[in-house]
Design a protein around this nucleic acid. Sequence first.
DNA 1: GTGAAAGCGCTAACAC
DNA 2: GTGTTAGCGCTTTCAC
Lengths: 343, 343
Amino acid sequence: MPVTLKDIAAEAGVSLMTVSNVVNGNHDKVSVGTIERVRAIVDRRGYVANASARSLAAKSSRLIGLLVPSSEHDVLVLSPHNVAVFGFLERRLRDRGYHLLFRGVTETAEVDVAVRSWNLDGAVVLGFLDEEVDGFAPAAGTPILALDSYSGNTRTTGVRSDDREGGRLAAEHLLALGHRRIAFASPAFSDVGLVRQRFDGFLQAHQDAGVAWHDSDLLVVDPTWELGVEVGRTLGADHPDVTAAFATADILAVGLMEGIARSGRSVPGDVSVVGFDDIDLAHYVTPKLTTVRQDVGTKGSIAASMLLDEVEGVGTPGEPVVIPVELVVRESTGPLSDRPSSV
Amino acid sequence: MPVTLKDIAAEAGVSLMTVSNVVNGNHDKVSVGTIERVRAIVDRRGYVANASARSLAAKSSRLIGLLVPSSEHDVLVLSPHNVAVFGFLERRLRDRGYHLLFRGVTETAEVDVAVRSWNLDGAVVLGFLDEEVDGFAPAAGTPILALDSYSGNTRTTGVRSDDREGGRLAAEHLLALGHRRIAFASPAFSDVGLVRQRFDGFLQAHQDAGVAWHDSDLLVVDPTWELGVEVGRTLGADHPDVTAAFATADILAVGLMEGIARSGRSVPGDVSVVGFDDIDLAHYVTPKLTTVRQDVGTKGSIAASMLLDEVEGVGTPGEPVVIPVELVVRESTGPLSDRPSSV
DNA sequence: GTGAAAGCGCTAACAC
DNA sequence: GTGTTAGCGCTTTCAC
């Protein structure tokens, strides 16, 4: 039988409310002597507050949802980058006394269901399309923080990296190395969103350098290693004029490198490759990947802090926070070589 | 204002209990007509049950804790292998109508606190030392499932891979290729536990092959890429007689390969390397890593199923379930070369 | 400072 | 089939 406030109260010979006040640190309502006496009993009996009861009575659960999209049947798969962000999020939430409810979500409506069902004090959504984020209509007063989203939904607050600048940095680097035909490899994108931003930055760099960019160098491919290999192979074999590629995810870039190598061409000798994220993998592969680093620590920590500030009534949804990115030059990029591109 | 059972009851002109029975599928207690009428209102009003209230009243939360160790200050970091297992766990729990409370834990006592505080129906612990698992004493009746543990704690039930066989397979493979000096790289281990098992299997293979193994070929190193590089470099530079290495984690094996390469020797030309886990990384690196594959899907799914069976009263803690492993031969291992090992 | 009363939204147990 | 009563463990409000 678990120990309850009532049990402690009985043993201490005080009322239940006094124990509650001691436990919750409302020390201005209890005399010092009582505090000590009650505290001793609490410790000895190993009292642990019942979160359900508190949640029910106080209308605050100290629970934060972490909601990620998940298809109905497939297993939920977190990208390495998101795993890293997750670590920082959890750490920060825990430090501030919150717990984390993790949940894969098939339909966006489930977000609202989760919030109401568990009385979530807040939620962070991660990996949803902007269109999906647009549709989030959480119970009033429940802060929702969207990571990496460009949705204009005013009910959510945003934290993301400077994607446009990242795209610009990647292209600028490649252009400076002398490359003039640079492929852009990414999943399909519309005229808003993270990939769009990276693309715009990419184009911007071309424009700044006075270099024209050809639509034909757009490679639409979902960000997986396997698909990257396929596309890389085609790129290497059939497009000798393309001497560089920028992929919007490291995992895709690594696949590209593999495919290019399989086509018999070398990275960076024949083709330079730049990725995005700077996951650990980037420096495990050969050649080590030049990539645009996102600051996962800052992203995760800031996200947690902002959300909790809102939860606790400090701060409100406003302009999204943008985390700076940084180009990390490694071995997968090099100057445009003079040698004729033979296939 | 959220919709409650009472609201629905009022609108339907029935009692609160009838609505409860409809919502919970106790259809044998309600007439068909009533069910339909109530259901319609429930749908229209968008009723969502309050999990805290149910948890409080029913003494069951339909919440499962996923508890992983986390040092007090550092960020929680999940290994790629554990991330993969996690995906399958979440999927299975969700399918059966449970939610997941994710929590980093600094002291083992927090496990019990989490269980009692949130009224967890069960918990899976992941990544704890056997000594820590030994100490788990959860509230009676709350099933705890320990992944990858060799603890004898009878309060927990276990799911793990066949580590001993994995170690044996790795050594057998290397021995069959002609190697006679094989390093064993792993974190420090005692006479029980997962690493111990892999080591025992490793020794077993040596014994079966009639090959002596030297203690001096034990490389104690925490399983990180960085440390692997260091150790690999030393191995490559100072131990020309050692022509193969088995690491108890892929990430360590990959670091080893990098270090060996940096020492000027080649993999697998001069030194063969075998890893453990078969994380994605294993086939991204060059050369692709030969490794012992753990079946993460089965591990995660079985773990969830077993735990929930226990939670629901079917099945009890018994013998740990052991998931088979499999050797995946790729490019990082090759026959012992005849060429004199020059340094 | 301390305590009594009421109620959060739900379910179990039993009456009708 | 349906409704009533009680109570899960806690916090809020308001007396004292």
